[in-house]
Amino acid sequence: MNQSPHFVKIRAVPQGRLALWMLIAGEFVIFGGLIIGYILFRLRNPEWAEQAKHTNTLLGALNMLVLLTGSYVGVRAHMAAINNQVNKVVMWMSVSIGCGFLFLINKSIEYSREISHGFTFTSPKLQEAGNNIGSLFWSFYYIMTGLHAAHVLVGIIIFSAILIQARKGQNLHRVELGVMYWHMVDIIWIFLFPLLYIAK
């Protein structure tokens, strides 16, 4: 009864990469929930345009550039890891971590600018002026960028952990996993950037 070729031909995915794809899908749904909530409220409250004017497009664009570069550098590290070129892996990954730090520095400059203008998570100044609707914009702004920045921080930690091993030529296959996470962070920013900094 088992005459038919009972071995179906399938292409396997290494288990680390498979798990990471699932993690990425899960993360997308988390950010997707936030982004959809933001879009719906943005369409409901045209007054938010007033607040969105205060986001700093220049710093946002700079961050986009930094992340795109980080992504590209990451993929070079990945290719170097496939070819067992430890020196190149270390070099490209260090550049990538540098990009992550640059992003966070930019972000903190941006946050301190906003805070000095009185735009915080709850924006008490706006509330006192009776502009409750406006303060909700800043709540969304901080929760979305904050959660993303937390992911960048986690990415830096993951990269550093992988780099420590990769320097000795160990566990080079993990470079790919770290880099894939890095691309995910990049893609999320690709959607956050137009939402918060361009569509004003």
Binding site: F31, G32, G33, T122, I143
Partner: peptide, 25 residues
């Protein structure tokens, strides 16, 4: 579970912020 829980995580973070620092989501 994996695909449906994401929005709740986002919602729980917002609810926590509503409770703890007083945002108005």
């Amino acid at each position: 579970f994996m695909f449906s829980v994401g929005p709740l995580i986002a919602g729980a973070v917002m609810l926590l912020l509503d409770n703890v620092i007083g945002t108005g989501f």
